[in-house]
Design a binder for these strands. Structure first.
Lengths: 298, 298
DNA sequence: CCTCACCGATAGGCACTGCCTATGGAGATC
DNA sequence: GATCTCCATAGGCAGTGCCTATCGGTGAGG
């Protein structure tokens, strides 16, 4: 049984005329006759009664017709659905990102992606790099924005370096600026009132490590909040915080940015996906847009 | 898109392994690979991610799989249904017959047919030859048992002579036998109390014509009944009736059969079907059994 | 009654393609 | 690093779908 044969069969059933059916399906009449005969031979029953000028379906033909129609419709649907995925008119991307990136980088990008491909569902998973890596490996995510280096270097993941961003110190505009001459050294953070993120934020580990490298333990006035809470506490004058410059840039005029002197602190953001399977089409497109619009290439 | 390709696709999706899938569908691995590639090329999307030792469906593959399964199942169903018709495990016969034949000839035959082909539905249309012929021509019947000659000789119908049966006179066993010496002449019916069928019965026209040929109009004590009613009236002693010998033979001991003398009356039963289309398989089988079991040929 | 037109079936040839075997090449394993 | 596994590629053969040309049977019209 071939799709072609079913197409021809339906055409003859509808035209009740071999020659006209052949025209309708753009094939010569003998070819159509031959295929119908082949189908009849395979099924072991005549499908049409070929009375002169009055082609009609036999009972076997009647039985086959609805199934043939459905098969052809299903084939059409299959083509269509795959095409929708290919053309990004449907599909989904399961994207993971660290909380700070969700706040800083993603909104504009996801907006642009959604505008271009409104049919693609965006599923965002916010979490620490460690969790994201695990979910990627499990296949629960297609793509993740993580901070390098990865917690446990997983050979199963491919990472593409996306950008390096500076960390800056933010403080309330109403307070006197920290540090000296518009910048601040890590060492100046010793004893300074720090507002610190909850466990799990890569920023927390990064800041702590930097302080310890300078030989001191930082002092926390508040700790445990998410990004928005930390910025709010800083605004309220509870202390200062170390945040990505991209987050600081969007934070508003009531926060003062102070760069870190002496090379400062940077972190590397990368895009990660499994090495062993190609991400779905929509995820590849999102990755492409991310790399294309990367704000400040490393 | 080919059925073969869908079969291969489903096999790979289930085995998650090209080589094993190839074995499962009894084809060489390169052929299977090639067909999958062809399908992917036609659809414009990869269906599998071919990670070493971990073949998985892409999103396009996931979209295709249920449709592929359904298409293959439908094709299987189509083959099966046609096969059922061919093998007479299903189907139907729309059979027309005159009332007297329904009573006389058909019960045993239909019983035999049903025993042999219990899956075939038997739809019986009881009516006068005229109606039956019209329904045959309209395609509402597959086959009809009619009395020759046909009312309006329709060139569109083919008739096969089935049997000729004698008409006999039946009377109540409690009454004195009609006629003389165990038989009766048509002329003896003059003035005799006749129980007559309703209009539409071919037997009515036949009997009337025979009487008129002898130069008299018959006398009816009751008229208008169906076969069973007529026999009941005769049993009750209301009169005598002219019926097919086959009906009389089954009528029981309380009815006396008297043959018609002088060549008597006969009628020819034929099987009719449209000439321009072959009857369905089940109807052809019924026709075959009818001809094979015909009680008293020509 | 003969001719013509119509329509599906048949015949023969060409090109395509699906299948095969043999082989390549890349990652995993010991 | 040699080997194994497994999918992809190459090349050749056979089957078949499509084409054009033609046949054969039927029904209409002169």
């Amino acid at each position: 049984m071939h799709f072609q044969q079913l197409t021809y069969f339906v055409a003859v059933a509808e035209a009740r005329h071999f020659t006209r059916a052949a025209e309708a399906v753009h094939v010569s009449q003998p070819s159509l006759s031959q295929q119908i005969r082949a189908l009849e031979a395979e099924l072991g029953a005549d499908l049409f009664s070929r009375a002169r000028g009055n082609i009609t379906l036999t009972d076997a033909g009647e039985a086959l017709l609805p199934l043939a129609r459905r098969i052809l419709a299903d084939a059409e649907t299959a083509r269509h659905e795959v095409q929708e995925l290919v053309s990004l008119r449907s599909g989904r991307v399961r994207l993971g990102a660290t909380p700070s990136l969700c706040t800083g980088l993603l909104p504009d990008l996801l907006r642009a992606f959604h505008d271009r491909h409104p049919g693609v569902r965006l599923l965002l998973e916010e979490g620490g790099s460690h969790d994201l890596v695990r979910q990627l490996a499990r296949g629960a995510l297609d793509l993740a924005l993580v901070v390098l280096p990865l917690p446990a270097a997983s050979p199963v993941l491919t990472t593409v370096e996306l950008l390096r961003e500076d960390l800056v110190v933010v403080s309330a505009a109403t307070e006197p600026p920290p540090g000296r001459g518009g910048s601040i050294r890590i060492a100046d953070l010793e004893g300074a009132p720090l507002v610190m993120f909850r466990h799990g934020y890569n920023l927390r580990e990064l800041t702590l490590a930097a302080c310890r490298a300078e030989g001191f333990e930082p002092t926390f006035t508040v700790e445990g909040g998410e990004m928005d809470a930390v910025l709010g506490f800083v605004r309220a004058g509870l202390g200062i915080a170390v945040v990505p410059s991209m987050v600081a840039a969007r934070a508003g005029h009531d926060l003062r940015r102070t760069t870190l002197a002496g090379g400062g602190l940077r972190r590397t953001i990368a895009l990660a996906h499994r090495s062993d399977v190609d991400p779905p089409r929509a995820a590849r497109e999102l990755q492409r847009m991310l790399l294309e619009h990367r704000p400040v290439p490393g």
